[in-house]
Amino acid sequence: MNIITIEHIAKIYQVGSEEVHALRDVSLKINQNEYLAIMGPSGSGKSTLMNMLGCLDTPTNGLYLFKDKNVSLMNDNDLANIRNKEIGFVFQTFNLLPRSDSLHNVELPLIYAGIPKSERRERAAEALENVGLGDRMHHKPNELSGGQRQRVAIARALVSNPAIILADEPTGNLDSKTGEDIMHLFHEIHETGNTIILVTHEEYIAEHAKRIVRLRDGLIESDEIVANRFIPKKNGASKV
């Protein structure tokens, strides 16, 4: 099933008198249970595209259909709803609430979704168990390692059972060993039927995905299936 369709998307930023074309003309279709990596040099528009796909931002031009609904026509409220229920974000800098413990961080999307307390506590705890942090529920972010923080962020992204996980350089702030653990987690998430889009600079990270889209100067340079995927193991990776 097709989840995302974008056609001739452009994003133009006005900086003073100058126009910055972050995205020029991007068209893309993404299906259910795809595992897509977006690559490209710095400034090529990867994050801009991710924000657009994640309904954090709206395109200047072009059509964006999310599950056949026209996102370009939505107001702030509708966009917030989609972000809450359909999209799970994972950021390079984790973006956890610094003064809240893991459990509260993970249950936050459920609060905004109007889930009653007992149910959301249960679901948040379960999501934390699933990323291997069952014993870190009451730790605050600064009491966790980088990899653990990213796991909390992933649990938060997963807790509301979104249609799609968006990860903008999720391993960018982690050492390669920890990054590999995170990639293993993504692999498992993908295996259970989730759709994942991730942005990365690292070729070997991108090769965990099934499909790689390369951007350059706000345009798609190439869009190809990964012939030889990495299938990560829990402790280190191996080629199939």
């Binding site: 994640g54 954090l56 702030d76 409220n77 917030a80 709803n81 972000r83 809450n84 229920k85 974000f89 973006n95 956890l96 609430l97 936050l108 999307p109 905004y112 979704a113 938060r156 509301s160």
Partner: peptide, 16 residues
């Protein structure tokens, strides 16, 4: 500001 951004990213509405 950052906190507000995070909350919005995970689905807080403007009125929330």
């Amino acid at each position: 500001t950052k906190e507000i951004g995070i909350r919005k990213a995970i689905g807080a509405k403007n009125r929330t």
